[in-house]
Design a protein around this nucleic acid. Structure first.
Length: 600
RNA sequence: GCUUCAGUAGCUCAGUCGGUAGAGCACACCCUUGGUAAGGGUGAGGUCAUGGGUUCAAAUCCCAUCUGAAGCUCCA
């Protein structure tokens, strides 16, 4: 990031933001300007506008920006006293607020918190536009290529002043700027490619899942092919967990409200839960999480230290009433399945169990070739009151996680305010095609729920001791995980996950009977097959198979039938030619069983 | 939840100034039986998201609701 901040591109974008603000003030003289920083692939500026902006305005502003750039204006920097700054910006209330905060040392000029109180305020001016700004900028507008700047590629959007939903909502206009028009075109092209890779688009094309407004928003419906995908993942992880000493359990999707009052989930998260169901004077909640149910299984027996660690695993479906604006395809839904497990451990076991839970998560990612993630340790925000439990326990839990990261040599960031309400956690964050962040795997340490539920085990000295809980989910949620891997693989799943593994293409009707025999043999070997019996030509059938990303296409005509062979064409368009059926079965079975990422 | 934009066939979309709806893909049937990226024809399929309003007349204009998209906020 610091390399980016020192780059010419960063200065170009920062300057383009100022130029956009100048053009906007010409279009909307009554507009109030907020802030406008460079961001990863461009820049934005927030405005308080007298009316909604439309496409015509945007086009006008973009054209005007190009004209300003062509006007050969220098970016002049000067320092003024706070009093002078307040006078200069007296008509810009957002700037006034920023200046006051700068002087008191609360924020920098992007509104981000910093420490140092400012005694001098830096101001940059180009042409007729003056902005509160620390820089840096390009020396002159001519350092920007007007044909490498665009603000019409993306619709404007709302954004709260200072990121606070209780304050004024501003209009954020995004722009992108590059050093050359070719780079801009390349970026726009990559953006289009990314949109085609979106799991909502690919999921529709491959027939994986759908939504129905009659069922309800944020409630995915899994079609047969999508179900094969998620079910294959679940069966795999279930077995891996059993191999690692986990015990499957099954618990109901609702629970008595008192359960969640004890756990503390209610009323902390009252607003993000479905309202209680009232039956016979009892209230039940659609469960927002699985932990309390597993805890009651733990509590159903007297536990000895000899029984620990206890590891309960369940693919548990939970329901959360997410705000409608947050819903997004499979990655943010209102009903989803957590590949959940809760470990009840002694203090001596905590570190080792935490580490092996992280390793299991890493094993899941490695098997699928998922490497593009970052690890985040989420700790408590000391300012907030949304956490339960006392400080000593929080410190212990946080230390345990940091120690585990260090033993695992796991690069990570530590971020305040990202903890669960009951404890700190280690999360694995992935990005989708449009670079939005999504948390998948998570491993959490929890001293608090054992306290609230008064969990115990009998130690070797016959005293009652309190276990520590580890919450962990390698996928995080099956829905979100599938969404991310759809984009990761662009729908071209490894053969073991592909809903249809082999598409059988008889060349003529004469060959259908042979294809049915081949299909039976493949099914017997555990391979998922489909026969294309349509009247289409072979070329069209191949095109359809490519569209569906089927790993292996087996073409069979008279020659193959006579030889007991299949002609193998890979999804990658590689033609392996004719091979005896048993040879294909051996090859395919090997690829599937090894969960290989290649097809031969 | 908020701001802005959008909703036409299963899917992707066209539909000019308000004058009662079109294409491609998919689907059904017919012809074609073809050896590695899409053969031809015919047909079926739509209360133009829903409900109100304006108008002689609404897919088109207005209002509300629902759903979706981008972003913000949030995310146990």
């Amino acid at each position: 990031m610091s390399a980016y901040q020192d780059s010419k591109l960063y200065r170009i974008r920062h300057s383009a933001a100022h130029i956009m603000a100048q053009a906007m003030l010409e279009r909307f003289p009554e507009a109030k300007i907020a802030i406008g920083p460079p961001i990863e692939d461009g820049f934005y500026y927030d405005f308080d506008l007298p009316r909604p902006i439309n496409e015509e305005d945007l086009q006008w502003v973009e054209n005007r920006m190009k004209a300003i750039i062509g006007g050969d204006h220098a970016f002049d920097c000067r320092e003024v006293s706070p009093e002078e700054a307040l006078a200069l910006f007296k008509d810009q209330p957002y700037k006034v607020e920023l200046i006051n905060d700068l002087v008191s040392g609360r924020v920098d000029d992007n509104g981000s918190p910093i420490a140092e109180p400012a005694e001098r305020i830096t101001i940059y001016t180009q042409d007729t536009f003056m902005d509160l700004c620390r820089g840096p900028h390009v020396a002159n507008t001519r350092d920007i290529n007007p044909d490498a700047v665009s603000i019409t590629f993306k619709m404007p959007a709302g954004a709260y002043w200072r990121g606070d939903e209780n304050r004024q909502q501003l209009t954020r206009i995004y722009g992108t700027a590059w050093e050359s028009p070719e780079e801009l075109q390349d970026y726009l092209h990559r953006l289009e490619e990314a949109k085609r890779r979106d799991h909502r688009i690919v999921g529709e094309r491959l027939g994986l899942f759908t939504f129905s407004s009659l069922v309800g928003k944020g409630l995915p419906l899994w079609k047969p092919k999508g179900t094969i995908l998620r079910d294959t993942l679940e069966r795999w992880l279930r077995q891996v967990q059993i191999d690692n000493g986990y015990e499957p359990v099954v618990t109901p999707h609702i629970g008595n409200l008192n359960l969640y009052k004890t756990s503390g989930h209610y009323p902390y998260y009252k607003d993000s839960q479905y309202a209680p169901i009232v039956v016979d004077d009892e209230e039940f909640l659609l469960r927002p999480m699985n932990c309390p149910h597993h805890i009651m299984i733990y509590k159903s027996e007297m536990r000895s230290y000899r029984d620990l660690p206890v590891r309960y695993a369940e693919f548990g479906t939970v329901y959360r009433y997410e705000q409608s604006g947050e819903l997004h395809g499979l990655t943010r839904v209102r009903g989803f399945t957590v590949d959940d497990a809760h470990l009840f451990v002694t203090p001596d076991q905590l570190l080792e169990e935490f580490i092996s839970a992280v390793k299991l998560t890493q094993y899941v990612f490695n098997t699928l070739g998922l490497t593009d993630f970052r690890a985040r340790v989420g700790i408590r925000d000391p300012e907030s009151d949304k956490y339960v439990g006392d400080d000593v326990l929080w410190t212990q839990a946080t230390d345990a996680i940091l120690q585990a990261c260090s033993q695992l040599n796991l690069p990570h960031t530590v971020e305040a305010g990202e903890a669960a309400f009951y404890g700190p956690k280690l999360d694995f964050i992935f990005r989708d095609v449009l670079k939005r962040n999504w948390q998948l795997g998570t491993v959490q340490v929890d001293y608090n729920l054992p306290e609230r539920f008064e969990l115990e085990y009998v130690a070797d000295d016959n005293t009652r001791q309190r276990p520590i809980m580890i919450h962990r989910a390698p996928f995080g949620s099956v829905e979100r995980f599938v969404g991310i891997i759809i984009e990761h693989f662009n729908g071209m799943f490894p053969a073991w996950l592909a809903p249809v593994q082999a598409l059988l293409i008889p060349i003529t009707d004469r060959n259908v009977e042979y294809a049915e025999g081949v299909a039976a043999a493949l099914k017997a070997a555990g391979i998922r097959v489909e026969i294309d019996k349509s009247k289409a030509r072979m070329g069209a059938k191949i095109a359809a198979g490519r569209e569906q990303n089927v790993p292996w296409m087996l073409i069979m005509g008279d020659r193959d039938a006579a030889a007991g062979a299949v002609s193998v064409r890979l999804r990658t368009d590689e033609d392996l030619g004719a091979m005896p059926l048993p040879q294909f079965i051996e090859m395919a079975s090997g690829v599937i069983e090894s969960k290989s990422l290649s097809l031969s």
